[in-house]
Simulated assay, not measured.
Amino acid sequence: MTLHVKVKPGSKVDQLFYDAAGLLTAKIKAPAQDGKANVYLIEFLAKRVGIAKSRVTIVAGFTNPHKRIEIDATQEVYERFLAEIV
C-alpha cells in the first residue's frame, strides 16, 4: 500500500493526522538533518501500523516534506491503521 504523507520534523510531539485539506500529515520529533527525520519517520510509521521497520520504505521525497511511502502490510492491517488516524 502507498501513502502520501506531508512530514513536519522538529515537532514537540509525534502525531499523525489529516489536515484541513485532507492530506495525511506526520509531525515528528526528529530534526530534518542528515536523514534523521526519514529514519525516525519509518520507525514511527512501523510502530503505528504494527509491522517491522523493514516493511516501510520511502519511495519518493527523501529531501522533500511531501513523501510517498510504501507499506508492506495486509489490507486488513492497512485499513485498521487508517481507521485509527485521528
Rank of each mutant, 00 (worst) to 15 (best):
T74R: 12
P9N: 05
E79I: 10
Q15E: 14
T57N: 15
S54A: 10
Y78N: 12
Y18E: 00
I58W: 07
E79R: 13
G10F: 02
G10R: 03
D34C: 09
G22E: 00
A83E: 13
I42H: 01
A32C: 05
P9R: 02
T63H: 12
Y18P: 01
L23W: 11
T25S: 00
G10M: 02
E79C: 08
P65L: 12
A60F: 15
L16V: 00
K67E: 08
K29M: 14
A46D: 06
Y40F: 13
I28P: 00
A32V: 09
L41S: 01
Y40G: 05
Y78H: 14
Y18S: 01
I51H: 00
T57D: 11
I28R: 02
A26L: 00
P9W: 03
T2C: 12
L24K: 00
P31K: 14
K29P: 09
I71N: 02
E70Y: 15
E70D: 14
F17I: 04
A20H: 04
M1Q: 03
A37H: 11
R55I: 05
V86N: 13
K67H: 10
I85Y: 06
G22M: 03
K36I: 08
R68M: 15
I28M: 00
F62R: 09
A21C: 04
A60P: 09
F81P: 06
L16R: 01
P65G: 06
T25Q: 01
Q75F: 08
V86S: 13
N38I: 10
Q15S: 09
T63E: 15
A46F: 04
P65H: 11
G22Y: 02
K53Q: 14
I58Q: 07
L41E: 00
V56P: 03
K12W: 13
L45K: 03
E76P: 01
Y78T: 13
A32L: 12
L23C: 13
Q33Y: 12
F81R: 09
Y18F: 04
E70V: 12
V13E: 05
K8C: 04
F17K: 06
L16C: 01
A30P: 01
V5M: 03
A32R: 11
A46L: 03
A52W: 07
S54W: 09
K67P: 00
K29F: 11
K12C: 09
D19A: 02
A20V: 10
N38M: 05
G50S: 05
P31Y: 07
Q33G: 11
E79D: 15
E43G: 14
G10K: 05
I85C: 05
I58A: 11
R48T: 10
V59L: 14
V59Y: 12
K8W: 05
D72S: 10
L82F: 05
L41D: 02
D34W: 10
K6M: 12
K67N: 06
V5T: 01
A32P: 04
T74I: 08
A73E: 06
V49L: 08
N64K: 14
G61R: 06
N64H: 15
D34E: 13
Y40Q: 05
P9I: 07
Y18K: 03
K12D: 08
K8D: 07
E76N: 09
